[in-house]
Design a protein around this nucleic acid. Structure first.
Lengths: 261, 261
DNA sequence: AAGTGGTCTAGACCACCGA
DNA sequence: CGGTGGTCTAGACCACTTT
């Protein structure tokens, strides 16, 4: 019945390297629904026997599927099709907190604190926050989860002058700032893509090398003072950020022509 | 002189798997500037001898560095530290074309066409463009480069009613639309991260699995009619998208209560 | 204790590049 | 042509999970 791993149809030179043929077979089986989330694959040694390939080649074929989060491997247990992660869509042009954003969706939010305290700033923080000599920085580092699924790593730095008591933050940073009349009204974000390192991948429960969104944010008070400098890592397979664009201001085409000239 | 690959300090059990120790050594050498862009690494077989590891292990240690774009391997030639790619920052909240955006930076723009013509739409295009039965779609697929470096893959679909002659587009799509009075004034984008597949990675000249930004955009005319549906892939290591946020309006109770701002 | 994935080896052949 | 990376093998031991 399960001819997914039959030795037939594995011919070198036919359609590229053997490990890619295997990769394609499994990827198609997942895409077509033949392999469903939670299904287990045969043990690597078993696949090797069935396909007539070596175990090294089997692992190489599986590797990319693990790296892209489609398969999950558990030592001592087995290889499984990854559970489907519901994609969340988040508006980028509004300044909201994670807590508020999730509450609006009616979802549970959990935080796992990695670090919460006052420290000596690193140069990056001095720059972003505009700190003076001797100023200390409040650092909040946590993994954000929703319904038990880790979605993001958030590393926030604030001037100690703004948040002298980081331990006071239990859930929502913005909630506390808001209660103190320090809610940011403007922020600038930079978004890029990155491959997760072993550490961050582990925190998010995905494989090393999985694509993630890196978002750096600097938030400002009405007065122009910097409130926070946050570096976040969002799971690429769990998030869509949405943004609405307006027509570029200025006299459209002629502007580009002038500047290009 | 070059003790990067000396057998000393390679001890199992000491600090994790051997391939990770090798990975760390090389990554640190790159980060510290000891290995500079363009430098070549010794051949794999040579590294294996120097370190006392097997070639398979050497390759495994190098693998992640290639996947993340820090090293480039050329068959028949060697392994090299990747040239530094200058990060471009692009404003997300303005609706500009790639051509205009680059011209504004005073950079050369090249396009390599992969496809340009009229086709029968796929369901995804019918949905996004609001096509009727029998409508055809203009498809523009190209690799965008700047100063010879591939930066993005752009796959645009437009109703044939908007662009009956896709061959007319030589450089800027928006330029042609603008000249015809069809310039979009509003667009909605969705941004996510993805691992590049072998095909797209090759088009962008990076390794399979490298993180990239996937941006889907739907653009509208003043009349509300959909002009284009574009799926783009941007190199994660070459782009920063910037967006400015405003205070979320009327989102939670506490804000409504204390709101003066 | 048995079975799983994780790591590692030594050696082989191929495809491609450059002199 | 020689040297490079790309693929593949058979077999070994380890660390962990499950039973």
């Amino acid at each position: 019945m399960n001819d997914l791993f039959s030795a037939k149809n594995f011919s070198d030179g036919d359609s590229g390297p053997l490990y890619l043929q295997l990769h394609r077979r499994i990827a198609e089986a997942i895409a077509s629904g033949r392999l469903k989330p939670g299904d287990s694959l045969p043990p690597e040694r078993e696949m090797a026997i069935q396909t007539g390939l070596s175990r090294v080649t089997i692992r190489k074929g599986i590797e990319a599927l693990v790296a892209s989060g489609q398969l999950v491997q558990k030592r001592g247990s087995g290889t499984f099709v990854a559970p489907k992660v519901e994609r969340l869509e988040q508006a980028l042009s509004l300044l909201t907190s994670f807590t508020e954003d999730m509450a609006r969706r009616g979802r549970q939010v959990e935080s796992h604190w990695l670090m919460r305290g006052l420290h000596a700033p690193v140069p990056e923080e001095v720059m972003a926050l505009g700190l003076g000599a001797g100023d200390r920085v409040a650092r909040l580092e946590r993994v954000r989860s929703s319904d038990g699924v880790p979605l993001a790593i958030e590393r926030a730095s604030l001037p100690a002058a703004i948040l002298p008591d980081p331990q006071a933050i239990e859930f929502s940073l913005y909630g506390v700032l808001n209660a103190r009349g320090l809610r940011p009204v403007r922020a600038v974000q930079r978004i890029s893509a990155t491959n997760l390192g072993p550490k961050d991948a582990d925190l998010l429960g995905v494989g090393t090398g999985v694509a993630a969104l890196r978002i750096e944010r600097v938030s400002y008070l009405e007065t122009g003072q910097v409130v926070e400098f946050t570096r976040s890592i969002y799971r690429g397979d769990a998030y869509d950020f949405a943004v609405e664009l307006k027509l570029a201001s200025g006299d459209d085409r002629s502007e580009a022509e002038r500047n290009g000239a």
